[in-house]
């Protein structure tokens, strides 16, 4: 699979897929999509990148260890749940704000933050699995 074309295209393809995954993640609350799907898309992007160019460039590109990303995601999801406690509500009560930035109304909420957490966990855990397996391949 280490053809020149594949190796040349792979980084761009991967970045496009990651970008698309973020799009899928953010529109998930209203259209088909969400953290699980977005995370899987990003994870396959990184897996493909790893197959094409080796694991080292992928690790350099994402900078953090995949499991660090996953742990951050779990943390983010938990914090999103805990935030409602500050207002005296039950754990995981959704909080919403609708600030208007540059004439566009944004919907920011703890469920969204939670979904981003889910995304990070899925990306991190599955990329970690894929990269670890690909690394054995190289040895």
């Amino acid at each position: 699979m280490n053809t020149v074309i594949f190796r040349t295209v792979a980084p761009y393809l991967a970045s496009l897929m990651v970008l698309f995954s973020i799009f899928v993640l953010l529109r998930g609350h209203n259209e088909p999509g969400g953290g699980f799907i977005g995370g899987l898309i990003a994870a396959s992007a990184l897996a493909i990148y790893g197959i094409a160019c080796g694991v080292a460039p992928v690790r350099r590109a994402i900078y953090f260890h995949p499991l660090q990303i996953a742990a951050f995601g779990l943390f983010l999801a938990a914090v999103a749940g805990l935030m409602s406690l500050a207002g005296g509500n039950a754990f995981m009560t959704g909080l919403w704000v609708f600030p208007e930035i540059g004439g566009v109304e944004l919907a920011l909420s703890t469920p969204m933050m939670f979904d981003i957490g889910v995304y990070c966990v899925v990306v991190g855990a599955i990329t970690s699995i894929a990269l670890a397996l690909e690394e054995r391949e190289v040895e």
């Binding site: 969400g34 699980f36 899925v122 855990a125 599955i126 699995i129 397996l133």
Partner: peptide, 17 residues
Amino acid sequence: ILTAIVISFSFFAFLLV
């Protein structure tokens, strides 16, 4: 099912390894 798919995939990977 959505979450089940992802979880069964992770555990499939675990069993595989």
